[in-house]
Design a protein around this nucleic acid. Structure first.
Length: 403
DNA sequence: TCTGGGGTCCTAGGACCC
DNA sequence: TCTGGGGTCCTAGGACCC
């Protein structure tokens, strides 16, 4: 049976949510109505545009570019800081509203949801439901959304990306040639900056041209990815709305250093802070890690990473840090200026309580107890309430997210 | 000029085993 | 002596998403 899918996408999410919050707190201006952006912190070398107002867009400002570039295009540009806690709250409000329509909701990102409405129409049309959601979000939550209406996820997502803001668009199969095929290939989901030049070389510029390219040729040239983009160009997508909560497959933390560092002991210090943060989150998920990965970025933006399996799955800070440190030492070339350091854990498995108590060594249990005491304090008083003595003086340099 | 951070998935090559 | 290929696991790196 044909699926009935909606894709709900918050317009300029970070900026809209900031605007609503400011208005609620008595602000006289709505930053959605002026040239404005949400930007990172330039003093911490993360000064990029994360979201822009429609007026900022008119100046040619795009997401991901530097605040410096953005100001060159628009000197009167207003920049507001990020506030992830606020985004999470608004994301949850939207989710609660959408739950009134179906519980088959996939939270694709903080500001995007897929809804499988197949069993929830009750005689109404999918388009009516979309219009209702669009109006209710605006009225009850104060920000606007685009809603894409289609029979699969890909087409719903493409539809929600048509003209903005505050719009509802359909993209049914028979509308593909008129609504999607004339678009440039850069508009197609999963076609990024590396693939587009390759398609241009094949004289493929529009989604329609890609759709009509020989399928076998695409597979031969691009493998699995080739098949996927050919199917997407033809509106084919059989994936299901993943509405069941899934634990993460990996957990990571990285930081751009305030200045380039070529002293390995300074890198170690940061790596320990990152590891504590990552393992804390890992334990809160009740997961164990099998693989540890350390990433370095040089001042010239060259990325390097090393990873290694742990002897056995663990969430213990000391064990994971020991391996992370080993990886750092074997990959760091003395004297290289480092811009970014990151660590992540992968191949996560559920922690099986019984198995652990039966087979773990007493030393492990001791480590685990130490982690638990620290975790409980962090949960009660905030992530930064407890910190290692040796880390104190570097704390002002590395500001970690308060979990 | 200055370029975030958190994810998922895929590929390719080497090691090792049968 | 000289020759094989399939399968799995591991690691490094890349592409893409928001």
């Amino acid at each position: 049976m044909e699926k009935q899918i909606l894709h709900v996408d918050v317009n300029n999410a970070f900026l809209s949510w900031t605007a609503v919050d400011m208005l609620k707190k008595g602000s006289k201006i709505d930053i959605r109505e002026i040239p404005s952006v949400i930007g990172g912190d330039e003093s911490r070398r993360s000064g990029i545009v994360l979201a822009k107002s429609p007026k900022a867009k008119i100046f040619g400002i795009s997401t991901g570019e530097t605040l410096y570039q953005a100001r060159m295009k628009c000197p009167e540009l207003q920049v507001f800081p990020v506030n992830y806690q606020l985004y999470k709250e608004n994301s949850n409000k939207l989710y609660q509203l959408l739950l009134q329509y179906t519980d088959k909701i996939e939270r694709f990102s903080v500001d995007e949801c897929f809804l499988d409405m197949t069993d929830c129409l009750l005689g109404d049309t999918l388009l009516n439901k979309a219009n209702e959601i669009n109006k209710r979000v605006k009225k009850e939550l104060g920000f606007t959304v685009n809603v894409g209406v289609a029979h699969n996820k890909l087409l719903a997502k493409m539809a929600s990306d048509f003209s903005k803001p505050d719009k509802v668009h359909t993209l049914f199969e028979e509308e593909i040639p008129t609504k999607m095929w004339q678009l440039p290939i850069s508009e197609l989901f999963m076609l990024g900056r590396k693939t587009i030049p390759k398609l241009y070389n094949m004289r493929i510029k529009t989604i329609g041209q890609l759709a009509k390219t020989d399928k076998q040729l695409m597979i031969k040239k691009f493998g699995k990815h080739g098949l996927m983009m050919w199917e997407y160009a033809n509106g084919i997508d059989n994936s299901e709305v993943q509405y069941k909560y899934e634990k993460p497959k990996g957990v990571g933390n990285s930081t751009t250093l305030p200045m380039d560092v070529n002293d390995i002991s300074k890198l170690e210090e940061t790596l320990l802070a990152l590891t504590e943060q990552v393992t804390y989150r890992l334990r809160r998920y009740n997961l164990l890690a099998n693989v540890v990965n350390v990433q370095l970025r040089t001042k010239d933006f060259e990325d390097k990473s090393h990873q290694r399996k742990l002897p056995e799955a663990t969430s213990n800070t000391k064990e994971i840090y020991a391996l992370a440190k080993e990886l750092l030492h074997e990959m760091y070339i003395k004297g290289t200026p480092i811009r970014l350091i990151g660590m992540r854990v992968d191949n996560l498995v559920e922690k099986d309580e019984l198995q652990l108590s039966l087979f773990s060594h007493t030393d492990n249990e001791k480590q685990e107890k130490i982690d638990k005491v620290v975790d409980d304090l962090k949960q009660k008083y905030g992530y930064n309430s407890i910190t290692r003595a040796g880390k104190l003086h570097s704390e002002d340099k590395i500001k970690l997210k308060d979990m």
